[in-house]
């Protein structure tokens, strides 16, 4: 019986790690701009599909493929910001969010054109049998995803708290006018945040594709789950997104295991709503920050 419970939890960690990694991507743009980038899911999909293209179709070496994928998706993030977000300076926040929806539709259209509708996959980073822990199993690739997620949080934390660039970036969202007054190039910070977010999405896509496969229209469902994870933990809080991701993943798995698999997403959402109603700023968000920011 314990083995079964353990298996449910490990399964929850598997999906939770995916949600966490996607959720992290939302935070960087949010921290710099207050925008929720609804094309974040497409960055993840591009990570997986472009990685497939380099490593399987062109047969390039593993690390070269990763670097090329990250560069390419980062470039797309840059283009997205310069072409659609930058021209909208000072526009209504909702308009900016809607334009990320429009961009996500365009990106999906391009992906469908280039890759078709089939799912894609490539071998996990390390080949071999899954790891057995007290009778329950977990894929090796999940450990990679976990490791990458933790590394990313560490780097993000250092970036936003220890570097001038990072501090400048988070100043932009809280008060762009004040940031400008102290000499921060707000426009460049926003551009940088889109590049970083795109890169983080690409890394996520590269890491999760061997587990979940990847197809052109997986973006919205990944984005919704990641967004929920980020919200549950409190927007803007990196560790929060990760904890949120794992909570949602494990809740889904336990619901599927002990209640019914048809309702796993519903139960996770009900609990998310419950948390929001008692803690309107998420688990780790503070009400004080919420009142300073409009969104």
């Amino acid at each position: 019986m314990f083995t079964v419970l353990l298996q449910f939890i490990l399964s929850g960690i598997t999906v939770g790690a995916i949600y966490a990694l996607v959720g992290l991507g939302f935070n960087i743009i949010y921290n710099a701009t207050s925008i929720i980038n609804l094309a974040q899911g497409e960055f993840v999909v591009m990570g997986g599909l472009i990685m497939w293209f380099f490593s399987q179709s062109l047969q390039l070496p593993f690390f070269t493929s990763i670097i090329l994928t990250i560069l390419l998706v980062g470039l797309i993030g840059l283009m997205m910001e310069r072409l659609t977000i930058n021209p909208l300076k000072n526009a209504d926040l909702l308009l900016m969010i809607m334009i990320t929806v429009a961009v996500s539709i365009v990106l999906r259209g391009i992906l469908m054109f280039k890759f078709g509708k089939d799912p894609y996959s490539y071998p996990p980073f390390t080949e071999g049998e899954p790891i057995v822990i007290l009778g329950a199993v977990i894929q090796q690739q999940v450990l990679w995803v976990l490791g990458i997620t933790l590394t990313c949080i560490g780097l993000i934390f250092l970036f936003f708290n220890k570097t001038m660039l990072g501090k400048a970036m988070s100043a932009c969202a809280v008060n762009p006018t004040a940031a400008k007054l102290v000499g921060i190039n707000v426009s460049r910070m926003i551009m940088l945040s889109f590049i970083l977010s795109a890169i983080l999405g690409a890394i996520g896509g590269i890491a999760i594709t061997p587990i979940s496969l990847m197809e052109y229209d997986k973006g919205p469902s990944l984005a919704v789950k990641g967004f929920c994870a980020a919200i549950m933990g409190g927007l803007g809080n990196g560790m929060g997104a990760v904890v949120g991701g794992f909570i949602i993943g494990i809740l889904e798995s336990l619901t599927a295991g002990y209640i019914h698999s048809g309702f796993k997403d519903a139960v996770a959402l009900v609990i998310l709503l419950g948390i929001l109603f008692f803690k309107p700023a998420g688990l780790f968000g503070s009400k004080a920050t919420l009142s300073v920011r409009k969104f």
Partner: peptide, 30 residues
């Protein structure tokens, strides 16, 4: 499971504990 789900080990573990002699999956796509 949902059409975009990434992992079905929970459901399969449950099937295993139910004493099934075979499992039938009905789906298309990934």
């Amino acid at each position: 499971y949902g059409p975009k789900d990434s992992d079905m080990t929970t459901q399969l573990t449950k099937i295993k504990t139910s004493g099934a002699q075979a499992v039938i999956n009905w789906s298309v796509g990934p």
